[in-house]
Design a binder for these strands. Structure first.
Lengths: 191, 191
DNA sequence: TTCATTTGATAACAAATGTTATCGTCTAAG
DNA sequence: CTTAGACGATAACATTTGTTATCAAATGAA
């Protein structure tokens, strides 16, 4: 699982093996809840196979805020870093193969690599990229129509409409599942 | 202007004076455009007095995405860091007193402080906080009604409804100015 | 002061979107 | 194979929100 990333990390072999040995493999069915609402996130997951959604509970209904696929890392990031009760639920969509690591081991690694400029800079850049992703997604929400957001999704993240049930996508786009169905229908019948 | 922050920075006096000397004072009237759409951001602003909004042009109409007040720093952050043409416009709302610094001087300072753990960690934490702010704002957009978003704004950032014209607030909340007026009216007449 | 501009409220109507319900298809478990 | 549940389409109706227009009050410049 991790060998494919070996060349991305300027570490000596002993460090590399130490870090990768912190990870634990698990296989779970679809609709497995990996983090409950209100729980403090203590695990970071990496997806070998499958997909995961993050959602918030809004008086009974769930609204999906993020989707994750193969080779992405997943956590309720604010809960994970600040040890706050998580406002979101983390749940598998498909049967999945995951690797997880304890927060304490992540902290250890981060502390360790802070003095390696290449990794330190990459870590900082990751944070910027995440900020920019949110800005972009947010601007799309206030600037584009639901139809345009749906078209953007097909264009930019085609695996989402391909693999994810439509009602999750609807809440991700900010519309009801009925309305998303209408949007698709309109797009099909021209106009 | 900068003396009030002196104790926040574990720097010797010569560094402190060097860094603060990079800043330039300017006074501008309301509705001054500090960064045009498509321009590459080369200045970071700090507000001594006044307020600023950041907005995006959407086929002729402008939608405000951020407000800034005294002591906050402002830039089209993605353009500033990545040297991309800015997708947003930066504009004063009130007559303002600003301090600005060249990007090249910011880069110099950042490079300089990377080896000071206290400042380096604070820099990283700032990035996290910004990410979290966006997450929070974004979740509010998909989770709350426009009325609830308006109530949140009054509760959490009262200087915005106090100081900013209502049509800017409306676009910031994602509704038309007419609808925001309706929302206020409904809240007034009970219910 | 005077006058143009900005700001905000409101009404009337149009368009977008949500809600509820029904139906058919597909899939997975037995 | 059979069946329950998940999924998606669609219709009918309700609600929310946008658009356009008008008016009044506040503001700022001459």
């Amino acid at each position: 699982m991790f060998d494919q990333f070996r060349n991305n990390f300027p570490l000596d072999d002993s460090k590399w093996h130490e870090y990768t040995s912190y990870f634990n493999r698990m296989e779970v069915p679809a609709k497995t809840i990996l983090l409950e609402e209100g729980e403090i996130s203590k695990k970071l997951f990496i997806i070998e196979k499958g997909c995961i959604r993050v959602w918030v509970n809004t008086n009974g209904k769930d609204i999906t805020t993020q989707f994750f696929f193969e080779n992405q890392s997943v956590a309720s990031i604010e809960s994970f870093i600040k040890k706050f009760p998580s406002p979101v639920v983390v749940e598998t969509i498909e049967p999945s193969v995951l690797w997880w690591i304890h927060k304490k081991d992540v902290d250890l690694i981060i502390e360790d690599i802070k003095d390696i400029p290449a990794l330190r800079d990459r870590f900082i850049n990751k944070l910027f990229e995440r900020t920019f992703d949110y800005m972009k997604h947010f601007v799309s929400f206030i600037k584009d129509s639901p139809t345009q957001r749906y078209l953007n999704l097909i264009e930019e993240r085609p695996q989402i409409p391909y693999r994810v049930p439509q009602h999750y996508i609807a809440s991700y786009l900010g519309v009801s599942k009925v309305h998303l169905s209408r949007i698709k229908s309109k797009l099909l019948h021209e106009k």
